[in-house]
Write a protein that binds this DNA or RNA. Sequence first.
DNA 1: CCAAAATGTAAACACTTGTTTGAAACATAC
DNA 2: GTATGTTTCAAACAAGTGTTTACATTTTGG
Lengths: 208, 208
Amino acid sequence: MTNKQTTKHRILDAAEALFADRGFAETSLRTITNRADVNLASVNYHFGSKKSLIQAVFDRFLQGFVKELDKELNPLEKQEDAPTVEEVLHTLVKPLMAVDGKRQQGTSNFMKLLGRAYAESQGHMRRFMQENYAPYLMRFTNQLHRAAPELANNEMFWRLHFMLGTVIFTLAGSQALHEIAEADFKESMTLEQTLERLLPFLAAGFKS
Amino acid sequence: MTNKQTTKHRILDAAEALFADRGFAETSLRTITNRADVNLASVNYHFGSKKSLIQAVFDRFLQGFVKELDKELNPLEKQEDAPTVEEVLHTLVKPLMAVDGKRQQGTSNFMKLLGRAYAESQGHMRRFMQENYAPYLMRFTNQLHRAAPELANNEMFWRLHFMLGTVIFTLAGSQALHEIAEADFKESMTLEQTLERLLPFLAAGFKS
DNA sequence: CCAAAATGTAAACACTTGTTTGAAACATAC
DNA sequence: GTATGTTTCAAACAAGTGTTTACATTTTGG
């Protein structure tokens, strides 16, 4: 673990953290380059523009995520009999945990970024995900279809997005929620425990 | 319905719409004053600062919302036997619809603003709501407690925020979702119909 | 080892931002 | 009427933005 990282890498790390807890518009390139301890111009040199930098931050996350998700989906697809809804949803846990690496409890930069991206650009993020990661997500929704074959396509669509909302919103604000829970109920939970608490809620809602 | 409105009112209207579909940081005072057809300086004259303007937009919405919510909660509180979870959740429908006035289908400025506010300011919005609207929301959560007395306080807390996430996220992005549903399933729905679809999902999740 | 390509750097650029200013226009009261 | 307080307005302000430039410096490959 030498802290000699490439400039590109340092910029991505700094940008990820700053975007996550300040937002995209609220984070200036100067703030990023100061934190990364690199020259201001190097962002435009390596990434071309601020917009491309944002996209690069997402791509790094999403590639890690879908790689892990793929691994989780393999056994389900091989399995002859249909999985349960809970089983399908559970394939998300490890990828979500893995993608953030070692983080303090109850914090997910990835989810914060997703939350911001969905909120800031009306529909833009949904389109981006659809266009760039449709095949990966399709494998997931296929399994959900197997688990709940009685659900019509449009019902499936809405409940899928209901679940998406719950997950992103909860995990994006998980830091604040954990602090409240800690103060009010002396309840200290990890991000993974929160996810485990979330999944039954989702499964129940999804099954109508 | 004369279109002679006070300057303050015109600013609020323009700001509300622009904040809702561009975000706070992404909307400049010049954009707002141009749209409202008022002088740039009048924002600072009437509201003091951009930050106060944002708060004013929220206050106008929230006051309308809690006023309607109060009316819905009255019968439940008078009622002797405990309400069902579905009944409690249903008290939200009319206030949510009323607060946006006459809008095109599947759009809610209020929810878009809430979504942005929650995403942009990490925990800040939760605190603001807690401090300024706690008594109103307490009445709502009290009814939820009556409907599900077996739920421990911490469980209640989490599931409440799970539901909050689903509602805000879904309704904030409802415009995009409706467009997709329209294109893919030839399914044209109003915002209220979406809410009616959402409530069973929430109730099921809430009841574990 | 040395030319060539890649990377790092400081300074400037053009532009937008929220806010303030001081005078003009308007309204209201006496 | 004049006086008084409120609201509008054009202009300027200082600060911050992303991006580009032109020049070092470092790294690479023959």
